[in-house]
């Protein structure tokens, strides 16, 4: 089947089998290998991407379902060679060790900060409860998200002052 989907702001198309899953569309057809496939059974969250504004596990969505939709992957976070404040937060706080879960963690917390710009620690921990990390014990991931939330709201405040 023929699919057209906006990925990280760019319209792309592919011809795939109906049984193709979104994670494999992104990785195999569009070469966006930042989206990781971990468990492939809707458990680990490494494959999380944003689909029309909500984070979802892309191993459990058919490619055909996103036809006409918009996807943001981890490759869409960096702008003009500048890390997104979340990515910088993970860097500064050692929010990863092996890095396998990181793309999913970033996309889930990106969506969290869009919905709740000032999350409590509990809200952060609840938000990432569908993303498994076997290295960090989560503490530094939470710290990274807290740093990003603070930087993003400081940025917003600056923009308001300038406007």
């Amino acid at each position: 089947m023929h699919i057209e989907v906006t990925v990280n702001g760019r319209l792309r198309s592919a011809d795939v089998e109906a049984r193709t899953l979104l994670a494999y569309l992104l990785r195999d057809e569009f070469n966006l290998t930042g989206t990781h496939v971990g468990c492939d059974t809707t458990s680990c969250g490494a494959c999380t991407v944003i689909w029309d504004g909500l984070p979802v596990k892309s191993c459990t969505v058919l490619a055909g379902q996103v036809d006409g939709g918009a996807i943001t992957t981890v490759e869409g976070l960096e702008q003009d060679a500048q890390l997104h404040p979340l990515q910088q937060g993970f860097w500064d706080n050692h929010g990863l060790q092996c890095g396998f879960c990181t793309p999913g963690m970033l996309m889930t917390t990106y969506a969290l900060l869009q919905r709740r710009p000032h999350p409590t620690e509990t809200e952060i921990r609840q938000a990432i409860s569908g993303n498994l990390c076997r290295c960090t014990g989560y503490q530094n991931i939470v710290a990274a998200v807290q740093q990003a939330a603070a930087r993003l709201s400081a940025q917003d405040a600056m923009e308001e002052v300038q406007a």
Partner: peptide, 9 residues
């Protein structure tokens, strides 16, 4: 139910 990502779908 399940986890927050599953709950979105």
């Amino acid at each position: 139910i399940a986890d927050p990502l599953v709950r979105n779908r």
